[in-house]
């Protein structure tokens, strides 16, 4: 972008960037020309360097989101000749649509049973990894293994493991003398199965984040506690956990933004169900319903309304999280 500037200026006698704009008095001809170029370079370059991000975000981030709001006011069918304006009709239909509320409940249910156990196990796992293990890096890589696997491949594999008739997990359950579980037809168990995939994938990753935070806790705090006779368990509860709070909140916030947009797992959980999310939509999530309405039923206006409602929900929850973080962080310092 700016190569012509640097080539034009070269290694001149006066290479220092001028401090003021009015450099015409320094000399005429070549020298002043160089000043102007240098000046331009200093002033314009930063904007050129950051421009790609802002332009791209405007085109593929901001504009689509705003345009989604616009489309949601129309009856906008893919390939239709005209798109009549219908105001907020899509929204009133949506809020009365039991399938949408069902999807909302499913999304939050899967989100809750994937986030809460995940954070707890991640903290415990981090505590184990924080001991003086032999071959430290090997263990860390080991727990991170699921994170690198392709989500689509792993969802397909888990879908097979959770199979009702021949699935390995049901075989194991039966081996221990329990009844087979219908992982697909039963609403609650299908959520557990999907949450298991999420947990399996992200627990190790979050454990490493928590581990990094644990190692940042100053050692003398523990030494002081030890002098005062605090047990290890007591130290963990009274020192480690409070000092991990900001990190835990960070983990929860990031998994909120991702978790509420969960799509791949419910889509691929059962090969036959597809975007329905089960025969009675028992594990259809909001993004999955949006995909179905927009790209299978071709009703882009309705899908846009759905996207926009979910957008507001996510931003609201992120905002609540943010406020909560600030309050908790300040109370944690006391």
């Amino acid at each position: 972008m700016t190569t012509e500037l640097s080539v034009a200026r070269g290694r001149g006698a006066e290479p220092r960037p001028p401090r003021r704009d009015d450099n015409d008095d320094i000399g005429s001809g070549k020298l002043s020309w160089r000043y102007r170029l240098t000046n331009l370079d200093v002033k314009v370059s930063p904007y050129l360097y950051i421009a790609p991000f802002f332009i791209l975000f405007a085109v593929v981030g901001l504009f689509p989101l705003l345009y989604t709001a616009y489309i949601s006011l129309f009856e906008w069918e893919l390939g239709a000749d005209e798109q009549p304006f219908i105001g907020i009709d899509n929204y009133t239909t949506l809020l009365a649509d039991s399938q949408f509320w069902n999807a909302m409940v499913n999304t939050f249910s899967i989100f809750a049973i994937s986030t809460i156990p995940q954070v707890i196990i991640a903290v415990l796992l981090a505590a184990l990894l924080n001991t003086a293990l032999r071959g430290r890096t090997g263990w860390r890589m080991g727990v991170l293994l699921p994170y690198v696997a392709s989500l689509v491949a792993l969802t397909i594999i888990f879908g097979d493991l959770f199979g009702v008739q021949y699935g390995t997990i049901n075989n194991i359950i039966e081996f221990f003398g329990f009844d087979r579980i219908d992982w697909q037809a039963d609403r609650w168990w299908s959520h557990v199965a999907i949450a298991t995939m999420v947990n399996w994938r992200w627990t190790g990753y979050n454990a490493l984040i928590v581990l990094a935070a644990m190692q940042a806790i100053p050692r003398d705090v523990y030494e002081a506690a030890w002098v005062d006779g605090a047990s290890k368990a007591r130290q963990f509860i009274s020192i480690t956990l409070p000092m991990l709070r900001p990190t835990l909140i960070f983990v929860v916030v990031t998994s909120t933004i991702g978790g509420l947009q969960i799509f791949t797992e419910p889509l691929l959980f059962s090969p036959s169900a597809g975007a329905n999310g089960g025969a009675t939509n028992q594990y259809q999530t909001v993004v999955l319903y949006m995909y179905q309405a927009g790209f299978q039923s071709q009703d882009l206006g309705y899908a846009s309304a759905m996207a926009w409602v979910l957008f507001i929900v996510i931003i609201a929850i992120a905002g609540i999280n943010f406020l909560l973080t600030r309050r908790l962080a300040s109370s944690g310092e006391a």
Binding site: L133, R134, V143, I157, Y222
Partner: peptide
Amino acid sequence: SLSERRPGFTVYGILIAFILGSAFPFYWS
């Protein structure tokens, strides 16, 4: 040594179980 003591078999055992669980779907596939 409160936190730096070499961990016992339990810790290694739990970690090994966790990693086996992590690797199982790959093996299954």
